[in-house]
């Protein structure tokens, strides 16, 4: 189960509303490299991980991503709070406003609703962990791009914190990948080709040899 703690992981206190900026930040909620996708990626991948350490790592990072999702949503909420429809329209927020008012809805900066197609869970620890490493780098790039465009110091402070976490997660996923790579030889009878197995699916000792099909003679 999950337990809620009534506090953000890092405080969000935005002094000046800015709907234009809110639209950009929104991408890290519902966009292709956002925190919702990150959380769903890890929390769904964790079940079939072949080591307890990896199940723990994905659970703990996936949980932290939920709190990042809450922080990103809090930024968007505070950036759009108390504005008039005219102000929102002047800041390029009319298209979002017409569907969602100032409610929080996960879309990318270009308005595409969140899609589970932005992440994968293929039930293979090597493939999934490599995706996780790439995902952390893509999220860092997105935060870098936000920092190139955002000039509000209150927003930048929070975005810098989130960017830093992508780097820490990348480091931990790298260590996680090494943990399972070091054990691959246990899964394969052929040490010269350690990647010819799926450690999340195949038993220790390697996949069962394919059985010869009986062919009926013509």
């Amino acid at each position: 189960m999950f337990q809620y703690e009534k506090a953000l992981q890092y405080p969000v206190k935005i002094a000046r509303p800015n709907a234009r900026l809110a639209k950009m930040i929104m991408s890290q909620l519902g966009g292709p490299n956002g925190e919702l996708g990150a959380s769903m990626r890890y929390l769904n991948q964790r079940y079939t991980m072949p080591l307890r350490e990896l199940q723990g790592l994905l659970t703990d990072i996936g949980t932290e991503e939920l709190s990042h999702m809450e922080m990103v949503s809090s930024i968007v909420y505070q950036l759009t709070k108390g504005m008039t429809p005219e102000q929102l329209e002047a800041q390029g927020f009319a298209d979002y406003f017409v569907d969602h008012t100032t409610g929080i809805y996960p879309v990318s900066a270009s308005g595409i609703p969140f899609s589970a197609a932005t992440f994968q869970s293929v039930g293979d620890a090597i493939a999934d962990l490599n995706e996780d490493l790439a995902a952390e780098q893509k999220a860092r790039t997105t935060y870098d791009n936000i920092l190139r465009l955002a000039d509000d110091p209150d927003v930048r402070d929070v975005i810098r914190f989130l960017r830093e976490r992508e780097i820490v997660h990348y480091q931990r996923f790298g260590e996680g990948l090494r943990l399972i790579q070091d054990q691959l030889s246990r899964y394969t009878p052929d040490p010269s080709n350690p990647y010819a197995v799926n450690p999340s699916f195949d038993p220790i000792g390697g996949p069962p040899q394919p059985r010869m099909r009986k062919r009926s003679s013509i």
Binding site: Q9, Y10, D60, V168, R172
Partner: peptide
């Protein structure tokens, strides 16, 4: 008070990730 509590909470979570791969 919240800042103190959350600073320690954050340190715990950061260390937790490290401990996951360095048990």
């Amino acid at each position: 008070l919240l800042c103190e509590a959350q600073s320690h909470e954050f340190a715990m979570r950061d260390l937790a990730l490290y401990l996951d791969t360095h048990p």
